[in-house]
Design a protein around this nucleic acid. Structure first.
Length: 354
DNA sequence: ATTCCACAGGAAAAGATGGTCA
DNA sequence: TGACCATCTTTTCCTGTGGAAT
């Protein structure tokens, strides 16, 4: 049924972006401002509604029409230093790799030298980048336009307005979830691009759009999951697949990919929580110390202390792998969200000590 | 109501890693 | 080769806070 699986990949760039025309125009118009310094932009909105795609489409157009240099950095989980090095590496005049120990101000200086014309830097997932002099320097470098993408248009990102001294709404594009019929259009388009001419009813697309509450990424993954289920079950029509089931399968897949992308320490902690199902903090730490020697034996990484472990939980939660009540500090209980998401590493069997 | 306690999470110091240069 | 340096991670130290005990 699926003729071209890439159509459903997260990084697939569709030929055109439906129902974001006004936002594209708004951003393009910003760039035609006479003063280059006044063109920094902020795109904010919830996950999976096309912020990144919007930025890609706009920069693509500007690259074609005005020959600007475009640099795209996913800042998720990166330090400020790593982001800046990535910016320099991607610049055509910059070196191909910048070593980790290069001083940040050197990186900034080299970037400044490399810039020789209109340059757009897209900082994706810019939420948790700390505000630093280096970032500010990037924002104020001549000929450099920063398009920041964030969930919440808060903290240092609102600095964009100070720098530009422009009214807030002119450089801040807020995008929201799609309406049911808008998202149904998008899904219909993807179905045409990705399926073997299977006929899926309009009602089915609308039902998916409704189920995922207008989050395009979830809708597309649900459509893919539905096609996979239909194939596995030997259904003739994709739209006879139960949508809730398909959505669950889609979320399951997203969680698995999330888990795989995490470093070793996270894997260990997830493994412990997964095997317990639900576990109190104290117990979790005890268990960790029991098995740590065995788990880390011979590996390049070493066990970490309690404080460092505590720092890993937010990411596991953010990735929808575990849950806990963060409003309470005492007797916190960590629980696995989807027990079917198996840990990547095998833990030794639980030692039952009473 | 007040005290006590456990623990999350911030800040700063220390350590690990890996590059540069004489 | 070894002293030195910058970044990034982890540890150490500590404060603030929610909830239980008194």
């Amino acid at each position: 049924m699926i003729a071209d699986p890439r159509v459903f990949d997260d990084d697939f760039v569709p030929p055109d972006l439906l129902h974001r025309e006004t936002e594209i125009e708004q951003l393009l118009r910003r760039y035609t401002t006479p003063e280059p310094r006044e063109t920094d932009m902020l795109i904010s909105g919830p996950s999976g509604v096309g912020k990144t795609l919007l930025a890609q489409k706009v920069t693509e157009r500007l690259k074609r029409q005005r020959g600007v240099t475009t640099i795209f950095v996913d800042s998720l989980g990166k330090t400020t230093g790593a982001v800046l090095r990535s910016v320099l590496e991607q610049h055509p005049n910059g070196p191909d790799d910048v070593v980790r120990t290069t001083p940040t101000d050197t990186v900034c200086r080299k970037f400044r030298h490399a810039v020789d014309g209109g340059t757009i830097v897209v900082l994706d997932e810019g939420d948790d980048l700390p505000e630093t002099d280096a970032i500010n320097e990037l924002l104020t470098t001549a000929h450099v336009t920063v398009i920041a993408i964030a969930h919440e248009g808060t903290d240092w990102l609102s600095r964009l307005d100070v720098v530009t001294s422009h009214p807030f709404d002119q450089c801040h594009v807020k995008i929201g979830r799609y309406g049911v019929s808008e998202l149904a259009d998008i899904l219909e388009r993807r179905a045409i691009q990705g399926f073997h001419g299977d006929v899926v009813s309009r009602e089915y697309f609308e039902a998916i759009a409704n189920e995922v509450a207008g989050v395009a990424r979830d809708g597309i993954q649900t459509l893919r999951a539905a096609a996979e289920i239909a194939r596995d079950q030997g259904f003739h029509h994709i739209d006879s697949v139960d949508i809730t089931t398909a959505y669950e399968r889609a979320k399951h897949r997203i969680r698995e990919l999330n888990l795989e992308s995490l470093p070793f320490h996270h894997q260990v902690l997830y493994g412990i929580i997964h095997d317990a199902g639900e576990i109190a903090g104290t117990e979790l730490h005890e268990h960790y110390e029991e098995i740590a020697d065995e788990i880390y034996a011979g590996g390049p990484v070493h066990p970490i202390g309690e404080r460092a472990r505590r720092g890993k939980f937010p990411k596991l939660k953010e990735y929808d792998l575990i849950d806990y009540d963060e409003s309470t500090t005492k007797n916190r209980v960590y629980s696995v969200i989807d027990t079917d998401v198996e840990p990547v590493i095998d833990l030794p069997p639980t030692v039952t000590t009473y």
